[in-house]
Amino acid sequence: MKVAIAGAGAVGRSIARELVDAHEVTLLERNAEHIDVNAIPAAHWRLGDACELSLLESVKLQEFDVVIAATGDDKANVVLSLLSKTEFAVPRVVARVNDPRNEWLFDESWGVDVAVSTPRMLASLVEEAVSVGDLVRLMEFRKGQANLVEITLPDDTPWGGKPVKRLELPRDATLVTILRGPRVIVPERDEPLEGGDELLFVTAAEAEDELRTLLLNPQQR
């Protein structure tokens, strides 16, 4: 897979290091001081402004599978996302949101498939760590209008001992995995649920309330 990363600061480099062993990675950076080929020698490095069509054309962005707009400038990330999608038809565009107040911009109308807001993700992880008996949204998948959500079953859950197949999930919700202590459990139909289980779902936003009621307040159904 070919991946272009705009921004070779701490975030961009960290992403590149994670991907470079398995994928062909190109780093785009406009600040010459941030160009350090020896830091990630297996990556391709290009000096230039990722918001300039000439640079994107020179690296043949249309041949890339994924573009990651990871600069520290939200305006640059939005512009690159739009260019990647509209001018080069890149299949997958991931954009970093630096200021949560700008998050409303990072949607499919600006070419963004997945928006990653570090403050929001940290807040979600804090909520996930302390929230039992509530639904916590961990990540938004803008392109498909779906979310990754987590529900921790309380110890006295009425679902304790009942198999996964008894869950009559909303049409637009899918159970992805069950986290039980150190175990990651594939949700087979006959797998019994337990109090304290962390259930991860991919679900449409409009199905979240129904999912919350099903798992946490089944007597209200």
Rank of each mutant, 00 (worst) to 15 (best):
A146H: 09
R30P: 02
V3K: 01
R166G: 05
V66I: 15
A10N: 13
T203R: 01
L105G: 01
D155S: 12
P41Y: 02
R166C: 12
L61V: 10
P100A: 13
E168S: 15
I40C: 09
L82D: 02
G160A: 15
V176W: 02
E127V: 03
P100F: 14
S14V: 05
A22H: 15
L153T: 04
G181K: 03
E140D: 14
V186R: 10
L148G: 05
L169A: 11
I40G: 09
E128A: 15
P170G: 05
A76K: 03
L125F: 13
A76R: 00
V132M: 09
R171E: 13
L215I: 05
D156Y: 01
S124G: 01
T174H: 15
L193N: 00
E24C: 05
L82H: 14
E24H: 11
Q62V: 04
I15K: 00
H44C: 09
F106I: 01
F201W: 08
K2R: 15
V94F: 04
L28T: 00
R142D: 08
S109H: 10
V136C: 09
R120Y: 07
V90Q: 01
K165V: 11
A43V: 07
G72K: 06
D209E: 14
V67M: 12
A39K: 06
V20A: 09
K75Y: 06
D209L: 14
G181A: 02
V116G: 03
A16H: 00
E188D: 14
L179I: 09
V112P: 00
L138K: 03
L179E: 09
M121S: 13
M121L: 15
A95N: 03
D156E: 13
V136D: 06
F88W: 07
G133A: 01
K85C: 02
I68E: 02
A43C: 09
L214R: 10
V202C: 11
R92M: 10
K75F: 05
A8K: 07
A8S: 14
S58K: 02
L135S: 05
D113S: 06
V94L: 15
L105S: 03
V93W: 00
T157E: 08
G196T: 09
S131D: 08
A70I: 02
A10Y: 08
R96T: 00
D197I: 04
R17E: 10
G144Y: 07
W110D: 03
A76L: 02
Q62G: 10
N31L: 12
